[in-house]
Every structure is written in structure tokens, then in C-alpha cells.
């Protein structure tokens, strides 16, 4: 437990040293800020962050793999993986620690968008319950996306490859499935609907707490963390 937290703390601190994290953070906040001011913050509009949450969910397809790409790839490239894996720490603790570290940074980024809610509250009465479920949805979606990115990072010593693979996997679940839902014939469109991350997320952004979504995102998180542990373990056997 100590060790997991030590890894998490190091990763979180690492983001504050890393220019990539600042750039990703700035771009994310800029994009969501622009969206907020040009699409939502308009007189006569509904005082709701719902459209913003959807936009953020799409931005995350590209932003989260940039945050996770260095997690394991960089350790493999620089060789620090060797000292890490010969320390008395289980591979699961390493993966969990890294996941918690990037999750913490993600929450910091997300906290930055609370400003929009505050501005909205000055001029109108946004439904705080809806906003809360929206944020819960963002946290669940983030956990799943970050675990996918972390998994991609365990596959290769190259950060860029990790980012591309991560984005590709996320794009399948967040974008391609939507396309399939609309275009594929039976029964594929039904299957695609079950695997479409955005279906589940939309419920949250509309203020609906749906356990199916909770189960979907948590299962995905668990699955990809498990796969990360396995790929990390498999490095020993190669």
C-alpha cells in the first residue's frame, strides 16, 4: 500500500515537471473554455453544462493517451523499469500506483472546469445535481480512458506509439461504435450500442445516474488495468 502510494505520488509529481502535461492541460482547458463561451454561455441558452461534458468526453479520446503515454513506456526506454521490477513491489502495485497518479492529475484538470460552473451560477441557476452526475460521469469515463492509455503504454518503449495505440483503442469505443450503431445492420448495431462508451456517458451528462454506465466504465477500467499488469509481467518472460 505504501509502495502503491509512493508510485502514485511520484507519477503525480512527474506531471508537474513535465512540459507535455502542461501543454495537454492547457489545450484541454482552452478547448473546453472556447466551447463553453461560444456554444453555451449565450444569453437565452439553458444554464446547463451538458453540451460541455459531451465535448470534453470527445476531447479526452485524444487528451488521455497523451497523459498516460509516458507512464510505463518511459521506464522501459530509460531502463528504470529494471530497478522498479527488482524492488520488492508487485507488478499490480506498480500499475495501480501509476493509475492513481495519472487519475489524480486528471482530477486536477477536471477541477479546472468547475470555473465554468461557477461563472454560470453567477448569471443563472444551473442544476447542481445534474452537474454533479455529469462530473461523476467524467470521473468514471476518465478512469476507463486512462486505464486504456496505461495499457497502451505497457506495450512499447516509444511514447508516441503508446499515445497512438491508446487513441486508436479509445476511438473504437467512443467514435467507431457510434458509427456502427447508426449504420450497421442487425445484430451488429445492437452489439455496438452495448459497447458504445458515449451511450453510457450521455446518461450521466443528462443528470441520470445509471448503474449500467457505472458497471461499464468500472469493468473497462478493471479489465485494462488487469491487462497492463499482464503485459508488464510478460516482459519478464520474453
Amino acid at each position: 500500500m505504501h509502495q502503491t502510494l509512493a508510485v502514485a505520488r511520484r507519477e503525480l509529481a512527474g506531471y508537474f515537471y513535465s512540459p507535455v502535461a502542461y501543454v495537454v492541460g492547457a489545450l484541454f482547458l482552452l478547448a473546453s473554455g472556447l466551447w463553453f463561451f461560444y456554444r453555451i454561455f449565450i444569453p437565452g441558452n439553458e444554464a446547463s453544462l451538458r453540451p460541455l461534458f459531451e465535448a470534453m468526453a470527445y476531447i479526452m479520446v485524444f487528451a488521455t493517451p497523451l497523459l498516460t503515454m509516458r507512464l510505463v513506456s518511459d521506464e522501459i526506454r530509460s531502463g528504470t523499469i529494471e530497478t522498479l521490477m527488482t524492488s520488492p513491489v508487485t507488478d499490480a502495485a506498480v500499475v495501480t500506483g501509476k493509475f492513481l497518479g495519472v487519475m489524480a492529475f486528471y482530477l486536477v484538470l477536471l477541477a479546472g472546469t468547475v470555473v465554468f460552473l461557477a461563472i454560470m451560477a453567477v448569471y443563472g441557476q444551473p442544476d447542481l445535481g445534474v452537474a454533479a452526475t455529469g462530473y461523476l460521469g467524467m470521473v468514471l469515463l476518465g478512469a476507463a480512458y486512462l486505464s486504456v492509455g496505461l495499457f497502451a503504454s505497457t506495450l512499447t518503449p516509444h511514447q508516441l506509439v503508446a499515445a497512438i495505440v491508446g487513441t486508436a483503442i479509445l476511438a473504437i469505443f467512443a467514435i467507431m461504435m457510434q458509427v456502427l450503431v447508426a449504420n450497421a445492420g442487425e445484430p451488429w448495431n445492437y452489439l455496438a450500442a452495448k459497447l458504445n462508451a458515449m451511450t453510457y456517458f450521455r446518461d450521466f451528462s443528462r443528470g441520470m445516474f445509471d448503474t449500467r454506465g457505472v458497471v461499464f466504465f468500472l469493468t473497462a477500467t478493471g479489465l485494462f488495468l488487469f491487462l497492463s499488469v499482464k503485459t508488464l509481467e510478460s516482459r519478464r518472460w520474453r
Binding site: A6, R9, R10, L84, S87, P88
Partner: peptide, 8 residues
């Protein structure tokens, strides 16, 4: 300090 924590 990080290594010391990893070393429990």
C-alpha cells in the same frame, strides 16, 4: 526518498 518508500 522515493526509493526508500518503494523499499518499504
Amino acid at each position: 526518498m522515493f526509493r526508500a518508500a518503494l523499499r518499504d
